[in-house]
Simulated scan of single mutants.
Amino acid sequence: MPASQNFAAPRIGDPAVFGRVAVLMGGTSAEREVSLDSGRNVLEALRARGVDAFAVDGIPALIEEIRRGAVDRVFNILHGNKGGGEDGTLQGLLEALGVPYTGSNVLGSALAMDKIRTKQVWLSLGLPTPRYARLPKGADVHAAARAIGLPVIVKPSSEGSSVGVSRVFNDADLESAVELAARYPGELLMEQMVVGDELTVAVLGDGVTHQALPSVRIVPKGEWYDYNAKYIAEDTQYLCPGLEGDAEAEIRRIALAAFLAAGCTGWGRVDVMRDRATGAFYLLEVNTAPGMTSHSLVPKAARQVGIGFEELCWRILEQTVEVAPE
């Protein structure tokens, strides 16, 4: 399907309009290596299109560049929280300094990083998400698992890339799963394990509206789509579009609704499970600064509608330039 059927041509033709672009990557979160890989790819793509882009590793280095007057806008490809770029902290800083940046604003970034609060918003709007329990320090994890029903997922509420995630099938394994998740900042989340297909839907905006791209169905060689399957293994299959007909239309609809409900803007990715027995969809989380590595899913979905990697990076950067009122 050519891009012209879904997306207008890029608004900006002259790369000089963007000025000096800091591609922000790396940082100190658990997803540092993925971010560096993503950042290198984005930097190469922007430079190939004539953009005056340069790499910046982490927020302190970015602050120094801004102080020097060397930054006109930021392409944020930091992943994670607490030293990463997805929890609203970076966005608040850039808002205060008046520096345009890619991706969601303070509200969307902070809310989407908190999986528990995101679920609360979705449920208030009738959007489907797996049963869950918040696990504060000292919580009775065995009682929580009984209430939800094994098997369950135990994970940090504010991490991505499958960091700190465990699948728990037996009551005896709960303590070790909690111990692993507790190594990371923030609250813990226990969630109903949905057995079925894992899918993801990219969302791309044009400065005015947002569209859901074709879904991607992920088929790992192993039992599940963990960190190794996401970023290292070469045998994971990606089917795009992941579904057909009414099912594909429905997953795009609920993914876009979930993205907007969380206050997200610009671009991102919504992860979804489809129950194998019932075909029902369950929303998992929104990624507001998705990976842009060779294994990443947003570029795969964009390619399906005729948008190559360089154009995708350009379109994301375009979102930092205000649309003139008609």
Rank of each mutant, 00 (worst) to 15 (best):
A70M: 06
P128H: 05
G50H: 08
L188S: 04
P156G: 03
D235A: 07
G13W: 06
C264S: 03
V141H: 12
T89M: 06
V51A: 01
P241A: 04
D72W: 02
D57G: 04
P2G: 13
S29M: 07
F309R: 06
A53S: 11
W122K: 11
V51E: 07
A96T: 15
G222S: 15
G160E: 08
P220L: 11
E310Y: 02
I251H: 09
V99N: 03
D173V: 02
S157V: 05
G108K: 10
H210K: 02
P128T: 08
Y227C: 00
F169C: 01
G279I: 07
G266E: 02
T118V: 00
T236F: 04
V201Y: 12
V168E: 01
S109G: 08
E86S: 14
S4P: 00
A277G: 01
S4V: 11
F281R: 13
K115N: 09
A110I: 12
A280K: 15
G108A: 11
A182W: 08
V34Q: 04
L111E: 05
V141Y: 06
L107T: 13
G85T: 11
F18V: 11
E86N: 13
Y282N: 09
E244V: 14
K155Y: 09
V178E: 10
A139V: 06
P151C: 07
L188R: 15
P156V: 05
Q211P: 01
M113Y: 12
L239K: 14
V208I: 14
T278W: 10
L283T: 06
S294E: 13
F281A: 07
C313M: 12
V208L: 13
Y225F: 15
A133E: 14
E31G: 04
L188H: 06
A143G: 12
F281L: 14
W122P: 07
H142Q: 13
R183E: 09
T293Y: 10
A301Q: 13
L78S: 08
G13L: 11
W224Q: 06
A3P: 04
T265N: 02
G92T: 10
R274H: 03
M193Q: 15
P220S: 10
V42E: 06
D226M: 08
E322V: 14
E326Y: 01
G207P: 11
W314G: 05
P220T: 12
L107R: 15
S104I: 03
Y227G: 00
G19M: 05
S161G: 09
G186Q: 07
M292L: 15
R49D: 11
A112Y: 07
R183A: 00
L94Y: 09
C264A: 08
M1P: 13
L317D: 06
S35E: 07
V208P: 00
S157L: 02
I66L: 02
N105K: 15
E44Y: 00
Q319S: 15
A22L: 06
E64R: 15
D235P: 10
V286Q: 02
A324L: 13
A139D: 06
S4L: 01
R303Y: 00
N41K: 14
G266S: 01
A172N: 10
L189S: 08
E33Y: 02
V323H: 06
